[in-house]
């Protein structure tokens, strides 16, 4: 029980970090924590070898994103108004409350542990909000990865296929590569 609550709290806290901070490094750290929480959740159902594929692919993707952002001329470190941060946080908190209210009904459809369902649906909803409040492709990629992490937690609880795990990991890495593709290198920095 304690571990389950801790996992839920950690997942929400990691996403909260991504939501509130403006520094892209902290956001990436938040996403990396999300992958770790996802790994712990999936570890309760799957063998370590298969569950670690999720963690490794996620972190590999994060490494790719970070490398491209380091060299990018477009580093999302814009100053945010406090009101914007509060608005974003409240919107996401609302999603978490709604998910808490509807999770038992969804659990009738999807017979998986409540912790997995709550974390999965909350992350999918939060990722959607995160993505819909921006036009920046880097933030959209972070939002998409959050949604996919949430879905991964739910789907892994339902099915454990090696092919699906492999393709899913490939998709995560491709999305991160796409993030890198749209963060062209800073030519001035390269010349230095």
């Amino acid at each position: 029980m304690f571990l389950n609550n801790l996992l839920i709290f950690s997942a929400l806290a990691a996403f909260g970090l991504m939501l509130i901070v403006s520094d892209w490094r902290m956001r990436i750290a938040g996403l990396a924590s999300l992958y770790f929480v996802g790994f712990i959740v999936i570890l309760q159902i799957w063998p370590v070898a298969l569950a670690s594929v999720k963690l490794i692919s996620g972190w590999m993707g994060i490494a790719l994103l970070s490398t491209s952002m380091l060299n990018s001329m477009h580093q999302v470190n814009d100053h945010r108004f406090t009101s914007e941060i509060i608005f974003r946080f409240l919107m996401t908190a609302l999603i978490w409350i709604v998910v808490a209210a509807i999770a038992p009904s969804i659990n009738e459809w999807l017979p998986i542990p409540y912790t997995n369902l709550y974390i999965g649906v909350s992350l999918m909803g939060s990722g959607l909000i995160f993505m819909s409040l921006t036009e920046d492709l880097f933030e959209i990629i972070l939002g998409l990865l959050t949604i996919l992490t949430g879905f991964d937690i739910i789907y892994s609880s339902l099915e454990g296929s090696a092919l699906v795990t492999g393709i899913y990991a490939f998709i995560i890495i491709l999305i991160c590569l796409l993030g890198g593709y749209f963060s062209p290198p800073d030519l001035d920095k390269e010349e230095e």
Binding site: L110, M124, L144, I147, L148, F151, I154, Y155, L158, V164, I175
Partner: peptide, 10 residues
Amino acid sequence: QTMAMPFILL
């Protein structure tokens, strides 16, 4: 297009 994938898989 990414949103389609979870629905079809579920």
